[in-house]
């Protein structure tokens, strides 16, 4: 094929995307089915399962739309199918955009317009794919060793094992919470993420109060999505004041 005729939105590429998306849906449905089956087998309350499904669906909407925004931004120069594939499998916008940019720089091409040469497109697809492969390749290799290590810690000292697990959560939460403060030196505009963090925490604390003191049990499963969406709304409303 003449490389000048290359179309990053071709039916062939959409076909590849549909194949990958179908795989992801089937795999997720497979694990969901077996988890629910196992839950029934060990006598777990079906209301807990239903609540988990409902609250997780609600919680996922905002991050999923954020991922969709990543697809749309990459689509400007890669067409829709490749970003659709990459952000549905392993990828995240924080990986895919630098991968595309790095390859474009290596090929001395601009990402300000849609890629029109198949070889350049192919090179970007290869770098995006190979750049992210260790996440998928090392998971089956390392998973049992990691789990065995955690079990050993818990077997030796159960109390310390629980603290060890809590410390893992804290490591992640502290890193991402700390990152929110990375722009404070910019002055008022840099304080908006900190304010959003605080608003989200306060809303979550209020939800906790209503769940524990007022008996609003239904709110328990929706507290995080509520705090997340309301604090995002706060960000949209407060943005002009922080950038005045």
């Amino acid at each position: 094929m003449n490389t000048l005729q290359f179309n990053p939105n071709s039916p062939f590429l959409y076909g590849l995307a549909v194949l990958v998306i179908a795989f992801i849906l089937v795999q997720s449905a497979y694990f969901l089915f077996h988890a629910i089956k196992r839950a029934k087998a060990i006598g777990m309350d079906s209301r807990t399962i239903k609540r988990t499904i409902g609250s997780t669906s609600f919680f996922t909407v905002a991050p999923a739309v954020s991922i969709l925004l990543g697809v749309l931004s990459l689509a400007q120069f890669l067409g829709l199918p490749l970003p659709w594939i990459r952000l549905s499998v392993i990828g995240a916008i924080t990986y895919e955009l630098p991968a595309a940019t790095s390859t474009a720089q290596a090929l001395a091409i601009s990402l300000s317009q849609t890629i029109s040469e198949a070889k350049n497109y192919s090179a970007i697809a290869w770098v995006m794919t190979l750049g992210i492969m260790p996440s998928i390749v090392f998971t089956p290799i390392l998973i049992k060793r990691i789990q065995k290590g955690v079990v050993n810690i818990k077997t030796k000292d159960s109390a310390w094992g629980n603290i060890f697990m809590t410390s893992l959560f804290m490591g992640m939460i502290s890193a991402f919470s700390g990152m929110v403060f990375s722009r404070v030196k910019e002055g008022l505009p840099g304080l908006l993420p900190v304010a959003v963090l605080a608003v989200s925490a306060v809303i979550m604390a209020c939800c906790g109060f209503f769940v524990q003191k007022k008996g609003w049990k239904w709110l328990e499963n929706y507290a995080l999505p509520f705090s997340m969406l309301l604090s995002m709304a706060f960000a949209a409303v407060a943005y002009p004041f922080f950038n005045a």
Partner: peptide, 17 residues
């Protein structure tokens, strides 16, 4: 601004718990 601040919105609620 709402989508730019999705991580603070997420980790504020998750972190406080």
């Amino acid at each position: 601004p709402a989508f730019d601040n999705i991580l603070p919105a997420l980790f504020g609620g998750l972190g406080i718990v």
